[in-house]
Design a binder for these strands. Structure first.
Lengths: 157, 157
DNA sequence: ATTCATAATTAGGTTGCCTAATAAACATTT
DNA sequence: AAATGTTTATTAGGCAACCTAATTATGAAT
């Protein structure tokens, strides 16, 4: 028996309303949103990992499958924003790092993010913005801990 | 000169973390997420409009272009979940309404939403859930009022 | 030595949008 | 009334951002 939850419905509608928002205009970088996210992910991951990032680590970080990562990497490598090296101890593994050009793009992209989000933060106010970020983090955490149930049978589930 | 905004960066990361979440499992309905959103939109819009919804109204409601709406409608019409009629006073306009089968699917889908979101609402707590919904509404409103700046020239903008 | 598991890749497909061009009907101007 | 412009929906075609299944190479375990 499913509980009727107006709050749940409201939340659902709110999240759906965000679907088509294009948060940042990346045109200045000449790259696509998915490319930038990948570069951000590597920038972040390599700080604490001098070996460069594995495809599987990136996959986990971005919540996408490894074929998707391979695809993204391939394009960005030919454009010279990152490079791969073989892992020294496990030859199945490749290590991905930013090139100098990649670092430059990341800086540009960060500026674009600031520019895009300053307006929103001003609109919401600093306090509410922080709270929103925290709530959204909790939402992500919830879905990470509790992956969606799989369906079989005839009901809605 | 762009202000450095850690709050903006945090918000950005939080929103990006939501990207790949599949909020509701619609398999029980046999339809895709975009189909369900369209049916919800019509269900909502026709309450206050006995004439059925125009393509342009749906387009506005879902924040997608009218060719996208036409495409969605076409599929759902052949599946028998909605039907079109010509407007009586303006022959350019078509009016879209749910069929009985469409109404049934909408009810099923609403149950699926409740089922999917009850868990999240429990996790966040009722109060925080409501607050989150409100904050997200404000975000939507911000982007509706203030469409993204267009780019030209060489800077990040 | 064989079997199993893991890492990355290749190939091909789907979803969910988009833009540009077109057709039909309505509205406005001359 | 005719021409022009505008609005509505549609058709055609394309792209971004993912996915699954199958494959190859290597490493780990029995």
């Amino acid at each position: 028996m499913v509980k009727d939850s107006p709050t749940g419905q409201k939340l659902f509608e709110s999240f759906m309303g965000l679907r088509t928002i294009s948060w940042v205009n990346w045109q200045g970088t000449g790259l696509k949103a998915s490319d930038i996210r990948l570069l951000f992910c590597i920038k972040k991951g390599v700080r604490s990992d001098t070996n460069g990032m594995m495809v599987s680590e990136i996959s986990n970080c971005l919540h996408v499958t490894s074929p998707t990562v391979t695809q993204l990497i391939k394009e960005l490598e030919t454009n010279g924003f990152l490079y791969r090296t073989m892992d020294e101890t496990d030859r199945r593994v490749i290590r991905v790092r930013l090139t100098e050009a990649g670092e430059v793009i990341v800086q540009k992209a960060k500026a674009a993010v600031s520019d895009a989000f300053n307006g929103l933060v001003d609109y919401l106010g600093e306090e509410d913005s922080v709270q929103l970020a925290n709530l959204l983090s909790r939402v992500s955490k919830y879905y990470k801990e509790r992956p969606p149930r799989l369906v079989e049978g005839e009901g809605v589930w």
